[in-house]
Design a protein around this nucleic acid. Structure first.
Lengths: 171, 171
DNA sequence: TTTGGTAGTTAGGCTACCCTAACGATTAGT
DNA sequence: ACTAATCGTTAGGGTAGCCTAACTACCAAA
């Protein structure tokens, strides 16, 4: 059952979630967020946002004050924090645990943040917390993972076996 | 730097990757793949595929024999195996390590498979192999993660603190 | 005050990805 | 042989998400 439809079952589209998170982060960083700032941060044109924010305003997630500064409503902020949470958790996992390069972790967390459920997010949080709070597990895992990683480094066996090492013919 | 453009930098689009994986899996399962079979497996209409496969044929990744059975070229099979590999690795991680429900793992792996780099995939493979091959790490991790999970069960503290536990105001 | 930069909007266009409806071709059942 | 189902295609439509170009409104400095 592949369900090839690349639809997201959330109420908001990936871009819309992204917009909310970015507004929230701009507010946290500099205390305000204009449409142009947001466009720069997201690397899209103002035109895109002018249209793209409309549904979020219609849903009362985003508003603007008398001077056209963007504001998150309480509902909007709640969503923004959820998205930011998913993003942070993913980036932390990719970067701190898997040791993927910062830039890669950032880029991929931005994409995956729209795809994972609350359950999965919680599980990753559990995982991060375990490594953080349980010194025994944390220390053992990190040292072994490092060693393991070094011992596999360079030309990976996995690249040579046609990727079949972990993928016997499907189900 | 959020780079709000939800573009994928791979040569193939998410759907195209998905199509290739599905063709490969059908072949592995039953030895052939017609367009209609593929449509059923992917839960899209034949019309969608009739058009959607065209670019893959143009790129010589997919072909069809004299009786219109879909075939993967060597290049197509290579891509299909890569995608399948990413999918399998993700599903295994979500399901076997994080203990996310099967259906959820399947669904989310289908989405994330298009977003992660080779590097990230390799790291997850390393992680899975470590848990599998290093009995000490594997056993310790699983038991502690289980216990940790039970001790956090039910109403998660994380849901109550506004998700801020791991997310101090951004960077 | 005129010149010019910045902000936001509108209009029109494009790609990706899905749909339904209608149609021709083949295959299978009676 | 005729009917019915299945297969694949085309035509046309829709949403999401981006773009450029052409505005308008404002604000600020010479």
């Amino acid at each position: 059952m592949l369900s090839g439809k690349h639809h997201h079952e959330r109420e908001l589209s990936p871009s819309q979630e992204h917009y909310l998170r970015a507004i929230w982060e701009l507010h946290a960083e500099r205390g305000y967020a204009r449409l142009a700032d947001l466009a720069r941060a997201l690397d899209v044109t103002p035109a895109t946002l002018s249209v793209g924010l409309r549904p979020l305003e219609a849903r009362k997630l985003v508003a603007h004050d008398d001077q056209r500064f963007l504001l998150l409503t309480p509902a909007g902020e709640r969503v923004a924090r959820e998205v930011h949470h998913r993003f942070t958790v993913l980036r932390s996992f990719l970067s701190d645990v898997l040791r993927v390069p910062e830039a890669t972790a950032e880029r991929e967390a931005c994409l995956i943040e729209h795809d994972i459920s609350g359950t999965t997010t919680e599980r990753i949080v559990d995982f991060l917390k375990l490594l953080q709070e349980d010194r025994e597990v944390g220390a053992l895992f990190r040292s072994r993972f490092d060693a393991f990683h070094r011992s596999c480094g360079g030309t990976r066996a996995c690249s040579d076996c046609g990727l079949a090492c972990l993928t016997p013919p499907p189900r």
